[in-house]
Design a binder for these strands. Sequence first.
DNA 1: TCTGGGGTCCTAGGACCC
DNA 2: TCTGGGGTCCTAGGACCC
Length: 357
Amino acid sequence: MSEKKRVIFHLDMDHFYTAVEERERPEIKGYAVIVGSDPKEGKGRGVVSTSNYEARKSGVRSGMPISQAWRLCPRAVYLPPNFPLYIKISGEIMQIARKYAGKFEQWGIDEAFLDVSDKVADWAGAEVLARQIKAEIKETEGITASIGVGPNKLVAKVASDFQKPDGLTIVKEEEVEKFLASLAVRKLLWVGRKTEAKLKELGVNTIGDLARYDPTALSSMFGAAGLQMHLMAKGIDKSEVEERMGVKSVSHETTFEEDTADSTAIFQALDALCEEVLKETVNQHLLFKTVTVKIRYQGFETHTRSKTLPFLTNRLRDLQKTANELVFTNLQKDRKVRLIGVRVSSLVSGEKQKTLF
DNA sequence: TCTGGGGTCCTAGGACCC
DNA sequence: TCTGGGGTCCTAGGACCC
């Protein structure tokens, strides 16, 4: 019996945050727009979340320090992120896309995988469907999306990035190897900056280089991820499109405006973060067992400390007491702190456990 | 260049249990 | 009085994603 052929879409909204802002404020259309931290005349901390294509012409990129963006593009329109709005519009878009898919998997706020194998007869049918989804999103929401189409998630993901904005790239099985071969390894899912650097040392620059490399050597260098990487480079990916159920952790963190050794300020911030984290866990009817605090010192050295309680809870005083103890016993008093954070995990839905309290 | 904030998954060592 | 093997849980760190 031959394996069923799959047709997978990867949907990727174009410069999503700035696209939403442009839609809401027609007066900024045509200008360079950057959503991110407050640039503070070039002295701001933090990074660029999203920049529109006008800003990208000046070299501005997602993840870039906002101070650097300010130097490259001081005349851009700088906006703080409006997450509630982005989440609302994302939800509407996902609802549109979901109805066309046999299986659907949201990926971050502005991307999704769709398994449409049962919805289309061939690649021509896939193209018709992809255009239909793009058109409906554009008509209903006024913003554009790019779609990549391929025989698996990996190829679809790489394809959606191939032509942007408002792109549609279809890669059939027989074209996969050729399509991938000349692209940089960094285009592969899970190959980030560190892995890219290690591969470069091996003389592996393109996905084609990686596909030809000895998998045993990759395995001894990267472990299981090495073999996975080699398969991906050959365009092989058997992972299913699957709906993700429930969060595994809830966290909040904050970077101080200036690094501080003031323990009053640090513990005050910690208490406030605990309150926010707790509010969310309660809203989602969750109980937690593990508390993790994160301390980042001046110079970016980062440590985490965690404690698993012998019971499930959603009480603020349990969270605050545990978080405070963890920070108190681990904080290096003579060092300035850049960031403090709190996370809860080992979550269980509390729907059936209301009687606990 | 000087690095946000929200997540997921993996690894490796150690404790502990049978 | 020196030491197996399997399994699970916990902790810390790190890479990666958007």
